[in-house]
Design a protein around this nucleic acid. Structure first.
Length: 886
DNA sequence: AAGGTCACG
DNA sequence: ACGTACGTGACCTTA
């Protein structure tokens, strides 16, 4: 490159926005000593390093917008109107981003009445004439109009660490247009985010067609009179002025009156001292480390002194009077079966570790651990509890769980690895398990014991140090009660349920399995006969070839990789060929056989039970999930699959299975949080909510007029509302036209106006705050609510509507579970809570306790929280899970 | 490791 | 114009 002059121009506002939202999840944990948010500064710096390295510029400038009013707003008052205003957490970072750039030796520029784009366009144009190679970096695709054979426009994708390079060829490939035609495209179609109009009813498709034919807006209007009569022609003529104005608004200037010259912006690299001072002010320990500056606070791991516990020195633990960090170490996820490879306990100045977990059962240590007056902080209280229980230790006094706290603070970035979680919270002095133990087949305890001990001490120290910081943040989020009164006690309830396990009748499963094998064999032969050849029915790829190529059935839907053969597709093809029904039958049985007969048999333990694990820190809404095996998706809807439930039986003779579920808890939650009077009334009077909705959307006067089909459609509409409705989604689900679906939704909102208001308000809240909350302040961040991409943004909007509903329902049953466990104990019952399936609790109990449960369980569940509408609970019992009839 | 499919609320 | 329901986990095939 040698003498080649290379100019880098960065769109400062655009990249700062991207940087801010790329690290929006960690907004609250990225602050400096003065409470200044630093996430955008941090991400901007990362991006800057990447692009400086990539383009090796000789000249650099970062352009910023000067203010809201520009020559464009003078031409068109609403230009960029309706934009949500910049969050204050970002605004406060702009001066520091500029300070960072100046420390880097990079000039910044802004110009009153002009946008950053115009500065960039003008300098790019000058530089081209001076023989520069020019690179522009921005998140705004409109700048691709500046692309030439000398200027490349690099658009940030997925945050800021990667860019897509637009050359004239790439623009042509993507849009089918020359860069210079982009302004014509914008003029015709308008721009919703910049809020200028274009021509009515002309979108991207139509605009592209017109430009391919006529070249430019001018070309279109020279030929408009000759076009044949159409709505489009009328719109073109009508909106002529708008089109030309929009083109002008879209055009980036190349002759803005800027004072900065190319000679002013040569790049000679950063001033290290200024940069160090800046990083110190921002508390960027990582960046200081990169500059070989020793970070202040973090002690190196080697400085931790620890004692290895043995039978001889065990009593020293008894002397500990301070709160401690405690943990039992395992190599694998499943704590019911994992090898226990060590433990740690202690506080600064007295850390203890061991690789002999049998010590935990020694009375000196066991008694201390079981004493609730010694506060303990852990990583994963449920995990720790179950592991301790395997050694006969019943841990008490756990008042902090780093894993749970981190999950509540931010559900998005979570991990089950202590090192990863600690890093998320800016604590670096602990390694990940993968780094210490390796992964996959190579995972093992280090041969050098000191390496294991050091890792254990690091973990203890991380928990200990992060506790006050995370507790503080929980309080700031108003989540401390959620943490202390809900998630911590729930973890203990779940631990007990998992330890108890549920009895599975293996012989019943085996018997069903051999019947299914025979059926499958017959179906398989039948499929081959109907296809005229053998193939792997389980392979969607091979099946697609048979159905759509060999047999020539119509292709209904495609997937990324080929033909879709999903149920909804096959159901449409059923009438066309008998093989389709046979395949559907085969699939149904094959699923039951592989997942529920063979899969379940594999997970039965020595005690004839399955012991699932509930993941308490995984879902984005606050629900639990269940793994190894998943007991929250045991078949129930179809008769064949439902029989699997016959294998779930009580663990003692003469006991019964008992279950209670909330009826329509999500709609009741919606009625409560939306405050909708009509929906609340329906629940208060215990009306059939789906029939009630049907009356309203079909305009009926009495419940007697509701047909089963109307009720079915109304039910789907109710569900659709809970999921964050769209007319298309509803139309697909119940097989009606999009227009009809839209009419349903409109009628729905007319009937339940409070619900509509809630939907509007919650999306607005998500935009303003960046997150939504449940009744108990469970929080979900939705950074995509600001996405320019329609799909991402729409998804975030639906999520904003659904999460408070689904999440509040999850909160409610969690409260009920904690109360339930207490009540069972208080009443001295033998009955045990075994499973939770989102809105349902499943128990086993001696037959004589059933009448007690029939009263007790519903009363605990429906009084768990007080809503503006009653909660309704239905119960049943029987000798197996299958036989529970409500 | 990823994608398709299908089980649940 | 955009392309969709919300939240999960397990199994199978194919890269």
């Amino acid at each position: 490159m040698g003498s080649q002059k290379s100019l880098l121009l960065i769109d400062g506002n655009s990249v700062a926005f991207r940087a801010f939202y790329a690290m929006h999840q960690v907004l609250d944990s990225f602050t400096n000593q003065d409470g200044l948010h630093t996430n955008a500064i941090y991400a901007f710096k990362n991006m800057l390093d990447i692009i400086l390295k990539r383009f090796e510029p000789t000249h650099v400038l970062v352009a910023f917008d000067a203010g809201k009013t520009t020559f464009r707003t003078a031409q068109f008052a609403d230009y960029k109107g309706g934009r949500s205003k910049t969050p204050p957490e970002l605004t406060e970072q702009f001066p520091y981003i500029k300070e960072l750039l100046h420390a880097y030796g990079i000039q910044t520029a802004e110009l009153a009445n002009y946008e950053a784009d115009d500065i960039i366009g003008t300098l790019a144009s000058q530089a081209e004439q001076d023989g520069f190679v020019v690179n522009i970096v921005t998140g705004d695709r409109d700048l691709t109009q500046l692309t030439t054979d000398k200027t490349t426009v690099n658009i940030t994708v997925k945050g800021v660490n990667d860019t897509e390079a637009y050359t004239p060829e790439h623009v042509q490939e993507k849009l089918g247009l020359a860069p210079s035609q982009i302004v014509d495209l914008k003029g015709l179609m308008g721009d919703t985010s910049d809020n200028y109009p274009g021509v009515t009813k002309v979108g991207e498709k139509t605009a592209l067609k017109l430009l391919t034919e006529f070249g430019s807006i001018e070309g279109v209007y020279e030929n408009v009179d000759a076009m044949k009569k159409s709505k489009m022609k009328e719109h073109l003529i009508e909106d002529r002025d708008q089109a030309f104005m929009s083109k002008k608004l879209a055009t980036i200037l190349r002759d803005a009156p800027i004072e900065t010259t190319l000679a002013d912006i040569t790049y000679e690299g950063p001033n290290i001292d200024t940069l160090i001072a800046f990083y110190q002010e921002m508390n960027f320990q990582n960046f200081l480390k990169q500059l070989n500056v020793t970070p202040e606070a973090v002690e190196p791991a080697e400085n931790y002194q620890y004692t290895v516990l043995t039978l001889d020195n065990l009593e020293t633990v008894q002397a500990i009077k301070t709160p401690v960090a405690f943990g039992v170490e395992m190599l694998t996820d499943n704590y019911h079966t994992a090898d226990l490879i060590g433990f740690y306990i202690g506080a600064p100045d007295h850390w203890y570790v061991s690789d002999d977990v049998a010590l935990l059962a020694e009375p000196v240590l066991k008694d201390w651990l079981e004493d609730a007056s010694h506060p303990k902080a852990v990583f994963g209280v449920k995990r720790t509890q179950v592991a301790a229980n395997r050694l006969g230790v019943h841990l008490a006094g756990v008042d902090f769980d780093l894993l749970l706290a981190s999950y509540l603070l931010n559900t998005t970035n979570n991990s089950n690895d202590l090192g990863t979680v600690a890093n998320l919270h800016e604590y670096q002095n602990v390694q990940t398990d993968e780094a210490v133990y390796g992964k996959g087949a190579k995972r093992a305890v280090p041969t050098e014991p000191a390496l294991l001990y050091q890792h254990l001490v690091q973990k203890a120290a991380a928990i200990y140090h992060l506790q006050p910081q995370l507790e503080e943040q929980l309080k700031e989020h108003q989540q401390f009660d959620l943490f202390t009164d809900m998630e911590l006690p729930l973890a203990l309830v779940l631990a007990q349920m998992e330890i108890t396990g549920i009895r599975v009748d293996a012989s019943r499963l085996q018997q069903m399995g051999s019947e299914f094998s025979q059926t499958l064999k017959i179906l398989e032969e039948k499929v081959y006969a109907e296809a005229g050849e053998t193939f792997n029915i389980n392979s969607p790829k091979q099946l697609g070839v048979i159905l759509f190529e060999k047999m020539g059935l119509p292709v209904v839907k495609k997937t990324k990789t080929g033909y879709s053969t999903a149920v909804d597709v096959l159901e449409q093809l059923r009438k066309d060929a008998p093989i389709v029904q046979t395949i559907l039958d085969y699939r149904q049985i094959a699923k039951i056989q592989s997942t529920y007969v063979e899969g379940l048999l594999k997970s039965i333990h020595q005690d004839n039970k399955v012991h699932t694990r509930y993941l308490q820190t995984l879902t984005q809404t606050g629900r639990l999930s269940s793994v190894d095996p998943n007991l929250q998706n045991i078949p129930v809807r179809l008769a064949e699959g439902r029989k699997i439930r016959q294998a779930f039986v009580p663990s003692h003779p003469d006991w019964q299975m008992f279950a209670s579920d909330y009826s329509q808890i999500e709609l009741r939650v919606l009625a409560h949080i939306s405050g909708d009077a009509n929906m609340q009334e329906a629940f208060k009077e215990d009306r059939d909510i789906h029939a009630n909705t049907a009356m309203k959307i079909f305009g009926l006067n009495s419940a007697d007029e509701v047909t089963p089909d109307m009720r079915r459609q109304a039910k789907a509409t109710n569900f659709g509302i809970v999921y964050g409705i769209s007319d298309y989604g509803l139309s697909q689900n119940i097989g009606i036209s999009r227009q009809e679906a839209k009419r349903f939704i409109d009628a729905y909102f007319e009937q339940y106006p409070g619900v509509q208001q809630f939907m509007v308000d919650i999306v607005k809240k998500a935009r303003e705050e960046g997150y939504v909350e449940t009744l108990f302040h469970r929080r979900r961040y939705l950074p995509d609510i600001h996405a320019k991409n329609f799909n991402l943004r729409s998804f975030a909007e639906r999520t904003a509507m659904n999460t408070p509903i689904q999440g509040s329902a999850a909160d409610i049953i969690k409260v009920a579970m904690i109360l339930m466990q207490q009540e069972l104990k208080k009443a001295n019952l033998q009955a045990r809570m075994l499973l939770q399936v989102h809105d349902e609790l499943i128990f086993e109990a001696p037959t004589e306790e059933i009448p007690i449960l029939q009263k007790l369980v519903p009363s605990v569940m429906d009084s768990a929280v007080k809503l503006a509408v009653p909660l309704k609970v239905e119960s049943g019992f029987g000798p197996t899970w299958y036989d529970i009839k409500k």
